[in-house]
Amino acid sequence: MSGQAKLSEKLPEKSIGRLPFAAPLGGALARLGLGPRALVIAIPTVWLLVFFLIPFVVVAKISLSEVAIARPPYLPLWEWQDGILSLSLNFGNYLFLASDPLYYSAFLESLTIAGFSTLFALLIGYPMAYMIARAPGGMRNILLMLVILPFWSSFLLRVYAWIGILKTNGVINHALMSIGLIDEPIVMMQTDFAVYVGIVYTYLPFMILPLYANLVKLDETLLEAASDLGAGSFTTFLTVTLPLSLPGIFAGSLLVFIPAVGEFVIPALLGGPDTLMIGKVLWNEFFSNRDWPVASAVAIAMLFVLVIPVMLLQKAQQSDGGHS
């Protein structure tokens, strides 16, 4: 007992002895009204400010400008001349977006392609995630490793590999023709099919990983309970597994859908001229048309069309989760 008492007396002395470095820093922060808590909030805030808000304001500014063959290729928003500050805001770029069906169609097609890709990724990814989650321990790690493995090689390289597989003189056509299944090569490159293949292939791990994380937590006795209460395995899946994995489906779908909407590289390399995606349109505006103001307007419009609904959806889900 007495030994314990001594020990507990000693401890504070020791820790005080170690503190001198930390104390002034903590004191300074405290004087500024910044506890460690404020610091934790401040870092992401500053991050967002510097890497999201400021670029966003710059893009918004350019979107209100007018295109010019100059460096940079747009006119300044304000001018200071003879003591008069003249501000010229050009909303024409937004009006142009609204008037030209191209942008509307590109948004729509991006959403469609991203939507279907997400669906395909879900249909392929779900059974894989389920299988991995139900695999025995050691096997599970190997399978997870295999899912992540493609990330170890360059994304571009993998897309190029798909070109080699899908093209007219590519692996698939050669294989099908050599076994006599087809006489003429099937045109797969430069089609929407190739874009779907590319997007689903590329983003599949982003679907599998959150689904896996969700499914691995699924209490197996719930499945036994459903079976005990008279559900066959398919009914059990529909009524228990599927609804309980909705958060995983939601997370995985967002992780696939959002980057797929803005995808540029895959439609540019695998898609044909008919594949109209907003990422390609943006690239086109910046590089082919060199029209930064319109490009910026497209970017801003995309933000409002996509990100805000997604944020609202997420918020709705969060508050829903809070209730139960």
Binding site: V67, A68, I69, D100, P101, L102, S105, A106, P273, D274, L276, V281, N284, S288, N289, R290, D291
Partner: peptide, 19 residues
Amino acid sequence: DARADRAITRLWTRVKTGQ
């Protein structure tokens, strides 16, 4: 010039995208 350039690139975008 800038006007003709914009016209020709816009038309081209339309041709390429089929819009």
